[in-house]
Design a protein around this nucleic acid. Sequence first.
DNA 1: CGCATACCCGGACGTCCGTGCGGGTATGCG
DNA 2: CGCATACCCGCACGGACGTCCGGGTATGCG
Lengths: 126, 126
Amino acid sequence: MTPGHHRSGLPLDPERVERARKRLPSPEETDRLTGILTLMSDPTRLRLLYALDLAEEMCVGDVALAIGSSEDATGYALRLLRTAGLVVRRKQGRLAYYRLSEDFPEPLRQECLLRLVALSQGDESD
Amino acid sequence: MTPGHHRSGLPLDPERVERARKRLPSPEETDRLTGILTLMSDPTRLRLLYALDLAEEMCVGDVALAIGSSEDATGYALRLLRTAGLVVRRKQGRLAYYRLSEDFPEPLRQECLLRLVALSQGDESD
DNA sequence: CGCATACCCGGACGTCCGTGCGGGTATGCG
DNA sequence: CGCATACCCGCACGGACGTCCGGGTATGCG
């Protein structure tokens, strides 16, 4: 019942198709990468990560003030990042201080967070 | 009518809040970054970018075969990436060959695509 | 010239995700 | 001890996004 709409299924350039297929990341790797990228592709969370990187440690309300989001949105973002293990929480009295996790990939912080800022500033041509 | 539910609005650590606020990327920068990250955070598109990086150039149907997605999904993914300027199209007869754009940030390809693979392979500890 | 192929396009559907809202818990202060 | 604060949580709404499906266009071949 496959819609006759599609191709024969034979590659037109089998060599290149195989070259790409063989070295593609596994589904698990793909999921992990897209998972991290998804977490970083939300404005609230991205600004939040920047803020924590700059301030080292802040309580929830101050993070909200720093990034200009509501406490609800900030709290939800922190929850997701904490679940993913990218930030950690230190409770002190009524306050909950958050900071980037030790497990936060250092190269990713350096090469992505900062590099991407540089990219967006200098490498665009439109 | 702000829900009395929220804080006074006064930062508990004004110095850190200011430190973070001052150096945060602008809304436009944030949008651009999240835009690129969003494009890379989809399994189809991510595998597609890998495949093009490896094969240099492929027609639509071969890309679909390489990444194991339908032609529809692949075509849609290529359209989005082309709209964003991350891939370019070369038409030859009935075929449409795609490749990574010259404008595709080279550091991003090197430092993100490849680096993230390395990260996902070696830097996890769970 | 007519048919099959390879791709493009627009609409519809289902899904996921972020936000706001109300309520809940624990801390610190008086 | 009682009240305000700072945060956490569950629900429901709305918007955005990816995929499927039908149809459309252009190329190449016989």
